[in-house]
């Protein structure tokens, strides 16, 4: 068949599914694929979660306006600085030097229209395998040794809490209570992060409600004290999406 039109190839670069005929041609035509690849460099650079259109707002602390007024010399003032209630101040204090993931995490956005079920299944397998996670059912609940309320980050309606339970046999369970809206073509994943977010341990998929994770023996919660829940697109990328909804630091 003829080559795909440039318009179709541009859509392919944006990872839109093509009509069957175009898709079949693209699969076998090196020239068309090269065109797609040459456009994709821009798509991959810009279509990243950190640059995406704003989601839920986060109120900046009052000192931000003070700095703006000082730098601009503007004497007017916002009549009401946004309420502090929606700002994730507790998390701010716990993770002061949050490094951006861009140099570490491959910046790939979960484009909704290219959900690869095979890849998604692989992620699930990888997460369960890598985290050595087991859901704890029944049995004694153990003693709470650490707990934390999870502050909302970017999703206004998410909240939660986490508690670490130590059982008689010395094993530890992280019990996560999450209250968050259901997701479409994405899922929530729980993590334990280092305070500087340079290292992280995936715990596994969570839904709204209570989920127990058996923590690997030897996992140092002093090193990974930050409980984090992220929204993960079904894009086959096992790395943290950078899109966290709640976060809190475990305190002994």
């Amino acid at each position: 068949m003829q080559h795909c039109t440039p318009e179709q190839l541009a859509l392919a670069a944006l990872r839109e599914p093509l009509p069957a005929g175009d898709a079949a041609h693209l699969a076998h035509c090196a020239q068309c694929r090269a065109d797609v690849a040459s456009w994709q460099r821009s798509v991959d650079a810009l279509a990243v979660p950190q640059l995406a259109a704003p989601g839920a707002p986060v109120a900046p602390p009052a000192r931000v306006w003070a700095a703006i007024a000082a730098a601009t010399g503007v004497s007017s003032a916002p009549r009401s600085v946004p309420p502090v209630a929606s700002a994730p101040e507790p998390a701010a204090e716990q993770a002061p030097a949050a490094e951006p993931p861009p140099n570490v995490v491959p910046l790939r956005r979960g484009r909704r229209r290219t959900v690869l079920l095979v890849a998604a299944a692989a992620v699930v397998g990888a997460v369960i395998g890598a985290g050595a996670v087991a859901a704890v059912r029944g049995g004694d609940d153990g003693v709470a040794v650490q707990s934390v309320a999870l502050a909302p980050l970017t999703a206004a309606h998410a909240s939660g809490s986490a508690v670490v339970l130590e059982r008689d046999d010395g094993t530890r369970v992280l019990r996560l209570d999450l209250k968050a809206p259901a997701l479409d073509h994405a899922y929530y994943e729980a993590w334990l992060l280092q305070p500087d977010i340079k290292g992280m341990v995936p715990l596994g998929m969570v839904e709204s409600g209570q989920t127990d994770f058996e923590l690997p023996a030897g996992l140092d919660l002093g090193r990974f004290p930050v409980v984090d829940v992220s929204v993960e697109p079904l894009d086959g990328n096992p790395a943290h999406s950078g899109d966290s909804v709640v976060r809190g630091e475990l305190k002994t």
Binding site: Q50, P54, V58, A95, I197
Partner: peptide, 11 residues
């Protein structure tokens, strides 16, 4: 600020 927090974490 929500965007900035998404990119760099709160702080």
């Amino acid at each position: 600020h929500g965007m900035a927090v998404r990119a760099f974490g709160p702080g």
